[in-house]
Computed example of a mutant assay.
Amino acid sequence: MSLLNDLINLNLSDTTEKIIAEYIWIGGSGMDLRSKARTLPGPVTDPSKLPKWNYDGSSTNQAPGDDSEVILYPQAIFKDPFRKGNNILVMCDAYTPAGEPIPTNKRFNAAKIFSHPDVVAEEPWYGIEQEYTLLQKDTKWPLGWPVGGFPGPQGPYYCGVGADKSFGRDIVDSHYKACLYAGVNISGINGEVMPGQWEFQVGPSVGISAGDQIWIARYILERITEIAGVVLSFDPKPIPGDWNGAGAHTNYR
């Protein structure tokens, strides 16, 4: 394991100018995130300088099997907190080979709206409060809950501190710092009402960047929970009954 960690943490800039770009997009459900990596000859800071790429849309429920090619258009660049160095995360949207946005590409129309001169003049600010639940991998039961059972009633868990009230803080703090490293304008975190449930806030962000940043923040959280062996859920009602739900409240100014 020590050698594996050494290899994972290799500093590529010591030996090569090449970088790794992780291309990220939203899958067919509208909530699943997909990504794949490619090597580039050197550092890039402008998404328009990045090459387009393709993927098999039939494997993401975004294209039929007999015409499955989908093209990724790079739209925003963030620093990669996992590979570090000059490596990057690239938020993309998806198009047909003919250049038409695929049906699940909601960013295309949003970008048109946000780029309209009247909207630009308004300078719309967004702050998004993203709630989520951490689940035990094997049972899909919230982190910190007794297997097959329930914790004490809600009350002490919201913004709570202590081993019997706060579950998963190491994941949450790792995500907080990784987002700041990446360049996401994450503005805070807190424990939520249901044990095993948390929230992070992204913003204030202007226009289309609010969407890019919240999706990259979700991607980073998915990767961190993958490493931790914990399942991430954005389900609005992960546990039925009188338990707090989860949402993504949006503030506008």
Rank of each mutant, 00 (worst) to 15 (best):
Y126V: 02
A163I: 07
G162T: 05
I220N: 00
L134C: 09
W215P: 13
P117G: 09
K137P: 12
L221I: 07
G155E: 10
K177V: 08
V206W: 10
L221E: 04
D118A: 14
W215N: 08
E222A: 10
E226K: 03
G127M: 13
A182F: 04
I220S: 00
L135K: 00
L221S: 03
N105E: 08
Q197K: 02
Y176L: 11
A228I: 11
G203V: 05
P151Q: 08
E222W: 06
D173M: 15
G211R: 01
K137R: 14
I102F: 06
Y126I: 04
V206G: 00
P156G: 15
A210H: 08
P153C: 04
E199Y: 01
E122C: 08
G229P: 15
Y157D: 08
P153Y: 03
G162Q: 11
W198Q: 06
L221A: 05
A182M: 08
Y158H: 12
W125M: 13
A121W: 10
V184P: 12
W215R: 00
D173W: 14
L143F: 10
Y176C: 01
L180M: 11
E192Y: 06
E199N: 06
Y132L: 07
Y181P: 10
W145Y: 10
A163Q: 07
P204C: 09
V147T: 15
K140Y: 14
E131C: 00
V172I: 13
W198T: 01
L135Y: 04
M194Q: 03
A111K: 07
T225H: 01
L221W: 02
D173A: 12
P153Q: 14
K112I: 02
E131Q: 03
N105R: 01
P103T: 02
A110C: 14
A228C: 13
Q130N: 14
G127A: 14
